Computed example of a mutant assay.
Amino acid sequence: MHPPASTSTPTTLAFVESPVQLLNVLEWSHADHTATATATATPPVLDALPGQPPRRQLAAAGDGRATAAGRPRPSPVRIVVLPPTDPMSRGQLRRVAALARDEGHQVQWQEARGSSLAPLRALAALAGDVRRADRIVVGDPFSRFVQLLLVPVRAEEIVVVDDGTATMEFVAQLGRGERLRRWHRTGGGAAARVRELAYAPVSGTARRRLRHAELFTSMPVEPLAGMRLRLNDFGWTRSRFGPPRLTRGTDLVGTSLVETGVVEPARYLDAVRALAREHGATRYFAHRRESAQKLRALSEATGLEIVRPDLPLELIARRGPVGRTVVSFPSTVVHTLPYALCGTGVTVAVVDVDPAWLTGSASPRARSFLAGVTETARDVRRLPAATARAAG
């Protein structure tokens, strides 16, 4: 057991549902501690980076590697993990949770899925702690369970840490006064609309609370009035790992766009095959949600070594080995890897998704959202969709 925080230190309670969210709680704690330790009144914010790519700016101040062993750790955070049901996500969560415990944080594993009673049991177990917390940190503002947890919150300070590119849509929807809805979700039928109406009071309360939250992000978003924006430059990752050994080849980064019903499977396979051939790629880092059947087909069609990371890619890449070029479809990593790999000499490239690859059931928002992920990425090399178009 870790010792409790000093009574003068705010009690911080964090809720995460994915490995990336848990990593970003560690990044937030590190940034918060660094700002306090250096007596910095206002931590770096995204709009303080006009026209300068992140790697150049970070390199000017050093690559973030630790220079003082035994420096004081951040104040401990109680982190509640609300795990999904898929084995890959749960495995990665357990690995990142071990890193969090090594940093002195308290990690609680709370099942909130898997049965009809699991959410009710979890709410009953957590409600009292939520009311007593001085500060709440959440990783997925779209989560209905997290929104339910925000109802009894009494803390004036709420922090939202990155959940990848979903953060961009979160801020946009909140600014427009819309209900929070994941960008790849379609409308649903009459039953779904009835459920939305019944849930409206909860979602409305969550939006009001989140409207004045602090946002800790690597994404290129504009802060809303009353919202504090703090830059996530992956300082904790850079201080703890690397720099990595670089290989001569190119690494491809997988995506779950097929699994979420956005991209046609055959189109995706053709695109990966073309990218591997053109860039001499040898490895494919699979997304944790990619199916085993799809990955087998990719391996057979391309000859790529399929790597299923046991940690978020930012940590895997920083620890190395990693290719001198990393190619990705529009995803979170085209925004985060330039920070995590600052000063290492790795080039991050992003390939556009051709609208012709989209499925007939893809949401109307899919095309513009994916284009926006690519267009707003800084310090990356852009590859046209035609580069990955299947021959013939």
Rank of each mutant, 00 (worst) to 15 (best):
L313M: 10
K294T: 12
R283N: 03
P265S: 08
Q293V: 14
Y284V: 03
V326I: 14
Q293A: 15
T325I: 12
R277Q: 14
A292L: 13
G280W: 09
A297H: 14
G303T: 08
A266N: 11
Y268W: 11
V307E: 10
R283L: 02
G320P: 03
S299Q: 13
E314P: 13
G323N: 02
R318E: 01
L313H: 07
D310R: 13
E300T: 03
V272D: 04
V326A: 08
A266T: 13
A276E: 00
H279W: 05
G280H: 11
P312D: 11
V262H: 02
R308G: 13
A271Q: 05
R267P: 01
G323H: 04
D310P: 06
L298R: 02
I316H: 11
G303K: 11
R288Y: 10
R283M: 00
T302I: 07
E300L: 06
E278N: 10
L311T: 14
L275C: 01
L315W: 07
A292E: 14
E264K: 05
S299T: 04
H279P: 00
L275G: 00
V263K: 10
S299H: 07
A276Y: 00
A276K: 00
A292Y: 08
A286R: 09
L269I: 12
R288H: 11
V326K: 08
P312W: 07
Q293F: 03
R273Q: 11
E305W: 05
T282D: 04
P321M: 06
P265W: 07
P309I: 05
V272R: 04
L269D: 02
